[in-house]
Design a protein around this nucleic acid. Sequence first.
RNA 1: GGCGACGUAGCAAAGUGGUAAUGCAGCGGUCUGCAAAACCGCCAUUCGCGGGUUCGAUUCCCGCCGUCGCCUCCA
Length: 470
Amino acid sequence: MTIHIYNTLSRKLEPLTTIEPGVVRMYVCGVTPYDEAHIGHAMSAIVFDVIRRYLEYRGYQVQHIVNFTDVDDKVIERANAVGADPLALSTQLADEFLGQLAALNVLPASAYPRVTQTIPEIRAFVEGLVERGYAYAADGDVYFRVGQDEDYGKLSGRSLDEMLTGTRFEVDPRKESPADFALWKAARPSEPAWESPWGPGRPGWHIECSAMCVKHLGSQIDIHGGGNDLIFPHHENEIAQSESLTGQPFARFWVHNGMLQLVNPATRQVEKMSKSLGNMMTIAKFLEQYEGDVFRLIVLSSSYRSPLTYNSDVAADNQRKLERLRSALAPASGTLTSGPVAEQLAQAVTSTHDSFTAAMDNDFNSAGALAALFDLVRAINSARAAALGGAPFSEAQASLRALAGVLGLRLEPAQPQQHHTLEPFIELLINTRNELRKLKQFALADQIRNRLAELGVTLEDGPHGTRWKL
RNA sequence: GGCGACGUAGCAAAGUGGUAAUGCAGCGGUCUGCAAAACCGCCAUUCGCGGGUUCGAUUCCCGCCGUCGCCUCCA
């Protein structure tokens, strides 16, 4: 069985082959930290986190690079608006984002390079393109000569002719062709700038990713990822720059996640979540209401390539889904360790592994993998009901935890240690209620349960006592 | 206008050329003093619409309708 991945470049499912056996070099476009991160950014991070975790589960060593565009027009604009230093602003927002990714259980990438740490490499990259005739300087700017690149447009499926007939290009007289794009931008007053052969300036947007790729992973990589809104022009231009400089294919696989969408309150239309459209849910706001696992489940529940519409119903559904997954981790209630029940459960573990792997091998079909997990949940709960315990039971639970972990799900109870002060009081009420139940004072006992429920504490009476949760 | 993705039960969402996973919600049952949780069972003769290919299509092809993304900064 081999892993198959949908490649935007070929628009087909292709078997994964890597440049170096057993190693996957993966570069994912990160964010431009100029404002608070929203759950669309989180979706993309989680998608590639799951891909990375699964590749590692299948035995690959993954070199995972995610960049920060810490200096660009938007950062500068925003910094000026709030009276901050651009680099201080982007550094602070990037650090915040990294903290949120940790809360969402996204594994740290191998490195998080930033533009400002890659200036010499970017400069050298641009110089190389100029030397080879793929770029030209004009008034302190440097532009990529798109017409020089014969297969420009191959990723996004457009031809240069089509693009030139479009009316939406602003005409810049310094450009040889309207489709040429900036590799280096001359500094304007009071902007961050670095010295260069063309005068002080800063990198254009697309060049940084090409330069960081080469710096951290080499001139050829296995997977290049990002949101599908980056296909054009960003990734198209990355290919143009990189392949023009090296003469070699840049990335084997181009992997793109779909957009997170949200109903725009102004237009009542479902639209891509975006700062500029004004319809967004920040990661911070989401995490105030729900655990990280809930958002991860939302992302895992559908194909990473499809658009995903977020609303509060979706969040609530997935909250319950999470509770169902956790139900399988409740302790055993019996002590049976052999017999048909044990065999059935062992069988279920095996078939779950098989379906999980088959689903994930098929372009990371996380929804299918999740379905396999739910089958195992039912099998474990059935076995518990049939009094299975001991090693056969705990081993099945360990399998569930392990596979959920491949998807990055923690499955830990919410805030397990935060109720130390509450605990004795709740226990006291539970004990009192159980005394009342023994005395058949059910009206009072039910009143305690109902009052606790109103306060957010749920009681469950089982054969071995009463359990509670917030 | 060009390029691309998608349209499956009340909702979310997998999937396959041979008669539809999974989760939520709902319904019936077991358990319980009653609940809750868990378990058992039910819940799309049907996969946007119309043609075509095929012994057979939800799955392949064509057209139409609808939704979304990109074509300008964007995960």
